[in-house]
């Protein structure tokens, strides 16, 4: 797992965990939607590096006004360059047939969420095998010119940081 410090104003930590072979995805999604479970489930295919989640979550937690209902939907929304809420949530969220997933929580202790997940936790380094760089470039509209100079993580986080006022 990764524990990341956020903006000093936020004074909270972000927990990121990666799971394989999760069996109760549909159950987890229901619990999140009914508010019983406070976390965000992210599709790992579009995540290049945990830092991408840190930037999106930090933006959500420092914002004066949110665009979506919860901090967790806001993180998903921020991950996408689309200004369309449903589209963003579908793009970065998961579906019932997903087996690999990233679990993002806010706070010191994520044991409550952790206990609900029926799957195998793996190191975040395993993202390298799951992520789909082609799909990432497409999702963030990163062309060949750009790929040659900036690292893909830099390109991705810079777009997340500016999604509310730049059309990508």
């Amino acid at each position: 797992m990764v524990k990341a410090a956020l903006d000093p104003l936020v004074n909270k930590t972000l927990n990121i965990r990666l799971f394989h072979s999760v069996e109760n995805v549909s159950d987890l999604r229901k619990k999140i939607m009914s508010g019983q479970l406070e976390c965000c489930l992210v599709n790992p295919k579009l995540i290049v590096d945990p830092f991408q989640l840190v930037v999106a979550a930090n933006k959500a937690l420092t914002a004066k006004n949110r665009t979506t209902k919860t901090i967790f939907t806001e993180i998903l929304f921020n991950l996408s360059v689309s200004k369309h809420i449903t589209k963003s949530l579908q793009q970065f969220g998961i579906t019932d047939d997903c087996r690999d997933l990233l679990v993002v929580t806010v706070g010191d202790d994520d044991s409550r969420v952790l206990s609900e997940i029926k799957g195998t936790e793996v190191e975040l380094g395993a993202l390298e095998e799951i992520r789909d760089l082609g799909a990432v470039k497409k999702a963030y509209k990163i062309g060949p010119e750009e790929g040659a100079t900036s690292t893909i993580v830099d390109s991705v986080v810079s777009r997340i940081a500016t999604k509310d006022f730049i059309s990508h």
Binding site: D7, V55, N58, E146, V157, S158, A161, T162, I166
Partner: peptide, 23 residues
């Protein structure tokens, strides 16, 4: 906004600029 926009526009054009973390 215009500072951030130019930084991003440079990136798209293949010109390296600082990565943006929060605006």
């Amino acid at each position: 906004k215009s500072e951030s926009r130019s930084i991003i526009r440079c990136k798209s054009a293949g010109i390296r600029t600082p990565a943006l973390y929060l605006v």
